[in-house]
């Protein structure tokens, strides 16, 4: 455990001194700020059923597709291509501590980026204070629910990035693999889940399993304040499984 904290502190420090961190942060906040502005503008012109916060978090997949690979592709693949993974493994540090510290570093930064988006409703509310509806911008329930979704689903998404980074020594290949796997999990899972809605006859157990993979419906539930344990189990167990696999890959590819 001691090694985990030493490595995590090192990871966060390296993230803070790396210019690419600030570039990724600026890109993310720039894109999400634009999205939030577009949602507010749409609300002015057309009446909407959903709160702007819910609409904003429904596009979580757009930044996920590029931020997660950017944050994780360097983690293990970069260390392996540089050779510093070898020097790390000559210390009494366990492989699991290495993988967990890489995961925790990227996860902390991922959450920090999303927390920074809280600034958008705060800025919008301060600018629209005269309006009667400005209070809905800071409606706590959907905000907390959506953030809970981002935090829980982030475990799986970042674990995917760490896993793909452990598979190769090329950062580019790791990034492309992460993007593909995220696409399969988010879009593929949603499409499989939609089979139920489109009237395809599925056996009972498969029906439940396929329904379980619909990430967008998890977000709907969280935003409405419905906290189900099944998504927690799905994201956490899959995330832990991938991190375990990453440890095995490091062990096997030493």
């Amino acid at each position: 455990m001691r090694h985990f904290w030493i490595l995590l502190k090192h990871e966060l420090r390296m993230l803070l001194i790396s210019p690419s961190t600030y570039l990724a942060g600026a890109l993310f906040l720039g894109l999400m700020g634009f999205m939030y502005w577009a949602i507010l503008r749409e609300m002015i012109t057309t009446p909407q059923d959903e709160l702007p916060t819910v609409q904003f978090f429904k596009i979580f997949w757009i930044p996920t597709f590029f931020v997660v690979p950017l944050l994780t592709m360097r983690s293990i693949a970069g260390e392996r291509s540089l050779g510093t993974l070898d020097t790390l493994l000559t210390t009494p540090t366990s492989r699991i501590a290495v993988v967990l510290s890489k995961f925790a570093g990227a996860y902390c930064f991922y959450l920090l980026l999303w927390l920074a988006t809280l600034g958008f409703p705060l800025i919008a509310e301060s600018l629209l204070r005269e309006s009667n509806d400005s209070a809905i911008l800071l409606n706590r329930a959907p905000l907390m629910g959506s953030f809970a979704f981002i935090a829980v689903s982030g475990v799986l998404f970042i674990a995917i990035g760490i896993f793909t980074s452990s598979l190769t020594r090329s950062q580019l290949v790791a990034g492309m693999l992460a993007f593909t796997l995220l696409f399969v999990v988010i879009v593929g899972g949603q499409q499989l889940g939609s089979l139920n809605q489109s009237g395809v006859e599925l056996p009972g157990w498969m029906h439940a399993t396929v329904d379980y993979l619909r990430i967008f419906s998890h977000l709907d539930d969280f935003a409405r304040g419905v906290v189900d344990t099944r998504p927690f189990f799905y994201y956490l167990s899959s995330g832990i499984l991938l991190l375990g696999l990453s440890t095995l890959v490091i062990e096997a590819k030493a």
């Binding site: 390296m14 001194i17 790396s18 540089l82 050779g83 510093t84 070898d86 020097t87 000559t90």
Partner: peptide, 12 residues
């Protein structure tokens, strides 16, 4: 104490 071949070090 181990020093690997090519001595990999973090540049930054």
């Amino acid at each position: 104490g181990y020093m690997p071949e090519n001595n990999p070090l973090p540049d930054d």
